[in-house]
Nucleic acid binder design. Structure first.
Length: 270
DNA sequence: AGAATTACCTGAGCGC
DNA sequence: TGCGCTCAGGTAATTC
């Protein structure tokens, strides 16, 4: 399930194939994603040259002179560069055909992904305008996290998963970051000390950048059979309920916020 | 008003 | 075989 590192590696992988390349066709195999694929997409994209491929949180932004295509991969979505003419398979929903002969193909088993078109500055689009700082930039700092969390009673895990607080941190990396810095996911955000916030901000940056580094060295988007799945990384706590903690050997426990699971080591996290 | 919580979209995979 | 349940991210809706 793509989180920020997977989206960033996708961006790095597809960017070189797309920038400067002209869209010569749009093929919508299925318009029914989490939100309907905008019907005007073929009309506005055909003939456009991709100027840049950017990322904001978990959104990819394909910038053209007439506007921008926003792509969200949801839980199971992935984008792949494939040879033109290759037949669409199950769960292939959308293709952009390029002048160079390649296709950018969106595959999404569970259809949680979405596509949006905006003619204006994408940063002003309502899906992006309310998003908090990028976690890998200086704007997301210990000081920022400390100030932002003051007075907040919500548990720190859902707090850092709130995209208005910080962009692109999902369930897996939230749990991993909290394990990495020794903070229990149930801790009220407002009760974190300045030192806790410093450790947590550093842990989020470390966990995300390590995953991007791992992913970008192992992915090959040119391969038609290349799969975008979990990066071959070792998870410390996520989905390891009952298994031994890699630090202390104690049992990893599962907790719950609403209908979201969290995983933690009660011995290593306080 | 602003924060916290809940529902919703989807479909694979699971247990029974 | 088939039903009911779970899970995921992010937004909208609702409650507090």
């Amino acid at each position: 399930m793509p989180e920020l590192p997977e989206v960033e590696v996708t961006r790095l992988g597809i960017s070189g194939h797309l920038v400067g390349n002209k869209v010569v066709g749009v093929c919508v195999h299925s318009a029914k994603l989490r939100s309907m694929v905008p019907p005007e997409l073929a009309g506005v994209l055909t003939g456009q040259k991709i100027q840049s491929v950017e990322r904001r949180g978990k959104y990819l932004i394909l910038k053209c002179s007439a506007g921008s295509l926003l792509v969200h991969l949801g839980m199971t979505g992935h984008l792949r560069i494939v040879a033109g003419g290759r037949a669409a398979g199950p769960h292939d929903h959308f293709d952009l055909l390029f002048a160079s002969g390649v296709l950018l193909r969106l595959n999404d088993v569970r259809r949680f992904g979405s596509l949006h078109w905006t003619a204006a500055d994408p940063a002003k689009h309502k899906l992006l305008s309310g998003i908090g700082p990028e976690p890998l930039t200086g704007a997301f700092s210990a000081e920022y996290l400390y100030q932002k969390s003051r007075g907040r009673k919500v548990a720190v895990q859902p707090f850092i998963m709130n995209s208005a607080v910080v962009a692109g941190v999902g369930n897996i990396y939230a749990a991993e970051s909290l394990f990495a810095c020794g903070v229990l996911p149930t801790t009220p955000a407002g009760s974190l000390s300045a030192a806790d916030c410093a450790k947590l901000a550093a842990a989020i940056k470390e966990v995300l950048s390590r995953s991007i580094a791992t992913g970008s060295s192992s992915m090959d988007f040119c391969r038609e059979d290349g799969k975008l799945a979990y990066f071959p990384q070792t998870l410390g706590v996520y989905d390891r309920e009952g298994e031994p903690c890699r630090e202390c050997g104690g049992k990893i426990r599962r907790g719950r916020f609403g209908n979201r699971s969290t995983f933690f080591c009660p011995n290593c996290q306080h």
